Computed example of a mutant assay.
Amino acid sequence: MDSFIYTSRPGRVVFGQGKVKTLPDEVDSLGVSRCLVLCTRQQVFDAKKLTDLLGDRAIGIFDNATMHTPVHITEEALEMAKTQKADSVVSIGGGSTIGLGKAISIRTGLPHICIPTTYAGSEMTPILGETVDGQKTTRSHPDIQPAVVIFDVDLTMSLPVGLSMTSSINAIAHAVEALYAVDTNPVIQMLAADGIRSLAEALPTIRQDPSSVSARTKAQYGAWLCAICLGSTKMALHHKICHVLGGSFNLPHAETHTIVLPHALAYNASSCPQAMEILARALPNSDGDAIKGLNSLLDKLDMPRDLARYGMQEKDIEIGVQHALSNAYSNPREIEEKPLREMIRRCWAGERAVQDL
């Protein structure tokens, strides 16, 4: 066995149906009593249920969490936290709201309790992506990771089927990159394989029966494992492209990950044979071919394949290429301009991934 380093991440996870009701106890255990609840404008109803649950521990709702965590939105939330004398933040939602909670927490030191309602996985990572003037940058620090995460399947039951699918493929992308990350290790590879397998098994059922509690629970479990992988390894080409395209052209986060994933995997395939073997075993209908297994899953789920539908224009391809080449992330295969350009073009046009461009 090769040598490796494994660093576990601190943080408390509460998992189970109905566990959101333990939120007041988690607040009390942190020794805080003035919680600012964060959400998007689409999830105010959920946020109000939390304030009812918290009672006088809640001091207000900030309902303008925004995709890609624009810094000017963070500044608005910080002002509210200061004015209301918040001593903690509670985020409920997906990556946009969780990102806002992280941004506030790392700037103020306020503890962050996170209640995910999607499968995107930001809640388990010490990573924060923020956008200024259309440029998205990321940073990592242990203090960015939320102090407590509550996974309650009941909060995912109303997640639209389409978003359930793209959010889950986003989670799978985290685990796929962890398989071939420069700092991967056997522990992370086991978590990644189990996370991918759980999601790949749950998603077809959710698509056919969105009310299946067992399938939703399996998906949430798989997403949790995939998120641990993201938080424990360095990101590579897939995440770099998604951050560049999403931040530069305001593309939807989960959908962008879904479209880019097979292309980034195909680009790296020949340079990470062990990762490809593990992935092939985790995906159904792969016949030993990870790319075939991934495409089979995406086809079965009828996933979107082109970025053009979300507003990216052909002229944006070159901008994306140049941004992706700058400050490149570590990657198993050298990042070359010509094949990178063709890969991003294929993502834009919705063409099938081609191995080793």
Results as ranks from 00 to 15, higher is better:
247 G>C: 09
223 A>R: 05
44 V>W: 06
215 A>S: 13
163 L>P: 06
169 I>D: 06
157 M>A: 11
272 C>H: 03
251 L>N: 12
345 R>W: 13
190 M>Q: 13
77 A>Q: 00
343 M>G: 10
344 I>H: 12
180 Y>Q: 08
327 N>G: 12
63 D>Y: 07
355 Q>N: 02
329 Y>R: 08
150 I>F: 07
347 C>V: 06
41 R>L: 05
280 A>W: 12
39 C>A: 15
212 S>Q: 07
59 I>M: 10
246 G>D: 11
258 T>S: 15
124 M>H: 05
308 A>V: 01
305 R>F: 08
5 I>P: 00
7 T>E: 14
285 N>H: 14
239 H>I: 06
323 H>I: 04
122 S>A: 15
336 E>Y: 02
42 Q>W: 07
74 T>K: 01
202 A>Q: 10
210 P>A: 03
224 W>H: 13
135 Q>M: 09
275 A>R: 11
132 V>D: 12
101 G>E: 03
95 G>D: 08
320 G>N: 08
222 G>T: 07
18 G>Y: 09
129 G>V: 10
245 L>Y: 09
103 A>T: 04
302 D>W: 00
313 Q>W: 00
147 A>V: 06
9 R>Q: 15
127 I>H: 07
259 I>T: 03
323 H>S: 04
3 S>A: 12
138 T>L: 11
319 I>E: 15
230 L>V: 01
16 G>N: 09
112 H>I: 02
6 Y>R: 13
103 A>Y: 01
52 D>Q: 13
69 T>P: 00
5 I>T: 14
56 D>T: 13
263 H>R: 11
229 C>N: 11
274 Q>S: 10
174 H>D: 12
247 G>R: 10
245 L>A: 10
302 D>E: 15
320 G>H: 06
288 G>S: 07
300 K>G: 15
314 E>V: 04
93 G>M: 03
311 G>H: 05
73 I>F: 01
215 A>H: 05
326 S>H: 13
193 A>D: 03
335 I>H: 08
276 M>S: 06
342 E>Q: 15
69 T>Y: 00
302 D>Y: 03
325 L>K: 08
274 Q>A: 09
163 L>F: 14
352 R>E: 15
315 K>S: 15
35 C>D: 11
275 A>H: 08
357 L>D: 05
254 A>M: 06
45 F>V: 12
159 L>E: 08
99 G>Y: 04
123 E>V: 05
113 I>F: 02
339 P>M: 05
145 Q>P: 00
12 R>C: 08
85 K>M: 02
148 V>Y: 07
268 N>T: 14
149 V>R: 02
